[in-house]
Design a protein around this nucleic acid. Sequence first.
DNA 1: CTGCGTTAGTATCGATTCGAAACTATCCTC
DNA 2: GAGGATAGTTTCGAATCGATACTAACGCAG
Lengths: 202, 202
Amino acid sequence: MDSRAIAELVLHLGRIASGEGLVEGLTAVQWAVLRYFARANRFSRTPSAFAAFHGTTRGTASQTIKNLETQGYLTRMRSEADRRSVRLVLTDKATAILVNDLFEALVRAADALPSGVRGHFANALQRMLGQVAWERGKPPFGTCASCKHLEGDGCSREGQAPYACGFAREPLLLEELDGVCINFVPGKPMTVKRSVAGAAPR
Amino acid sequence: MDSRAIAELVLHLGRIASGEGLVEGLTAVQWAVLRYFARANRFSRTPSAFAAFHGTTRGTASQTIKNLETQGYLTRMRSEADRRSVRLVLTDKATAILVNDLFEALVRAADALPSGVRGHFANALQRMLGQVAWERGKPPFGTCASCKHLEGDGCSREGQAPYACGFAREPLLLEELDGVCINFVPGKPMTVKRSVAGAAPR
DNA sequence: CTGCGTTAGTATCGATTCGAAACTATCCTC
DNA sequence: GAGGATAGTTTCGAATCGATACTAACGCAG
């Protein structure tokens, strides 16, 4: 199978699937914002992190977020540790429309894949994402499960959390492990080969 | 693996990979137009077909195409069979920048996949695309290789082409089998022998 | 404590894209 | 030939885009 055809397929599928926006009067980008802040862990719920995730500029991200804020989908809280920074949290209104769910077509399509294929498929996607992001000098945005910064063995000893993040130097709650993180660095199970030159971050 | 995580991965990869636009002063959408007309077969090189492919409206497609035309990347020819219709052809200027190539990062990423995985990966993508497109009532856009309309066994008898399209009721040249088509209907699994290596127009 | 470079976020600019709707021209069917 | 469907264009307002300039807060060196 032609690699170029695969690349075209990825772009095409992503484009067709993200063109759902219409429901609830939100655009595709606005849906992406809501999904991001629903999935991002506490280190990553900032405008800058979303800009990096979405592959856009901080300025554009700021506009879209402000728009959603005035529509009552997001609330902002200044960070206490760093008073330049801002934390964004979904409102009940946002979580309500997220559960009745959007982009369901793509989820159903993924669900319809044979169960034996799904794992390999996700691995291939994550791998391609890692390589593309690396070539552009952008963070690949993964979860703790395969992150190099994850520390701990899952056994909770006294006075110590079962897991911790070696980058943020903070303990991690169990339910935080599934959140998407801007500090993700591909670690253990995946060995991404990066053999190509020409990585020019814009 | 969570189906939702797969869906997010697909969107994320597509977005990050298509954000390359800048080179040559073209936007991501404009690159998509050029790639489309380079890959589309002769039944599909129209504004309407591109609009369907890209998941947008005919109006928007018309604007983008007109823009590229004035920049000298496309030339238009009225169809002789249907005088409402318009055929778009890449200029030498367009093919020149397509060979020095863009979105190469994604192609390289696909190329870096283990060869045993590539086929299954492409199959899963095509499958998801088929399902998503079907749910939205949009054409899935595939190639003859797995299209239900493909007729013929590949053996060229005298006075008859080896393959033909049952939908367009026209014979097909061998090098046309790899073109993307708006009339694609998913049929048999991909089992067409292909010996036309290296004939890619790009 | 004072500079000073860096980072987070916002504001503004023009260009592009978007969906929707109205419109012309052509085709097709009855 | 009439009526309806299709191909394509045009126009409108809204949203996004990248780029740039800007404010405010951080953090480090001295």
